[in-house]
Every structure is written in structure tokens, then in C-alpha cells.
Measured scan of single mutants.
Amino acid sequence: MTYKLILNGKTLKGETTTEAVDAATAEKIFKQYANDNGVDGEWTYDDATKTFTVTE
């Protein structure tokens, strides 16, 4: 399945997608991606749209 991440960081904003077997796997990938890019904030997930959002 395709999952989407919306980044609302102070210095980085944008979107990315990943292919993952489930939401938990996608979350791990996205949290590593956000960490690698210096984004740390409040996480939400919308199962209907398979979208994670992180807001600093």
C-alpha cells in the first residue's frame, strides 16, 4: 500500500510517499525520514487517506 507523509516543519515543508505492508511499517519509515531531516513534532494519522502528518 502507498502511504503519504505531510511535513509541516519549521524549516522543512512538503510531502513524500512510501510503499509499506502496513501503517506501522510506514510510520517507522516516515519517523526516520523526519528525524533525518530535523523535523520533530506532533504526529497524526488518517486511516481513511493513509496519510501521516507531522507538525512542529
Rank of each mutant, 00 (worst) to 15 (best):
Y3L: 01
Y3F: 15
T17H: 10
L7H: 04
K4R: 13
D40P: 04
L7A: 04
T49G: 05
T16H: 14
A20Y: 03
G9P: 03
A24Y: 12
L7V: 15
K50D: 03
D40K: 12
E19H: 14
T16W: 15
A23Y: 14
A23G: 05
T16A: 13
E27S: 09
G14V: 15
N8H: 10
T11Y: 13
G38I: 04
T18N: 04
E56V: 08
E42G: 05
W43L: 03
T53V: 08
D40F: 15
I6Y: 09
M1E: 13
K10Y: 13
Q32S: 09
Y33G: 01
E56P: 05
A34K: 01
A23F: 09
T2N: 07
Q32H: 09
E42P: 05
T49P: 02
E19Y: 15
V39Y: 08
D36F: 09
K28D: 07
W43F: 04
I29H: 09
E56H: 07
T17K: 08
N35F: 15
G41P: 01
T44F: 11
V39Q: 04
M1K: 13
A23K: 15
Q32T: 10
G9S: 10
K31S: 04
T16P: 03
F52Q: 00
D47M: 10
V21R: 08
E19F: 15
D40Q: 15
T11H: 11
V39S: 03
E27F: 15
N35A: 14
A48N: 12
D40T: 13
T49N: 08
Y45A: 01
M1H: 14
G14E: 08
E42M: 12
E15D: 06
F52G: 00
F30T: 00
D22M: 04
G41R: 01
F52R: 00
K50Y: 12
K31T: 05
V54M: 05
L7N: 02
K28I: 10
D36T: 09
D46N: 10
N37D: 03
Y33K: 03
K13N: 09
K10S: 10
D36Y: 09
G41L: 03
D40L: 12
V39R: 02
K50T: 04
N8Q: 09
K50H: 13
L12W: 14
A34Q: 02
T51D: 01
T16S: 09
N8F: 11
A26M: 02
N37H: 15
A26I: 02
N35R: 15
K13M: 09
T51Q: 04
N35V: 14
Y33V: 05
T55V: 08
K31L: 08
L5S: 01
I29V: 12
A34I: 06
V21H: 09
K10R: 11
K50I: 03
V54Y: 03
K31N: 05
A34S: 05
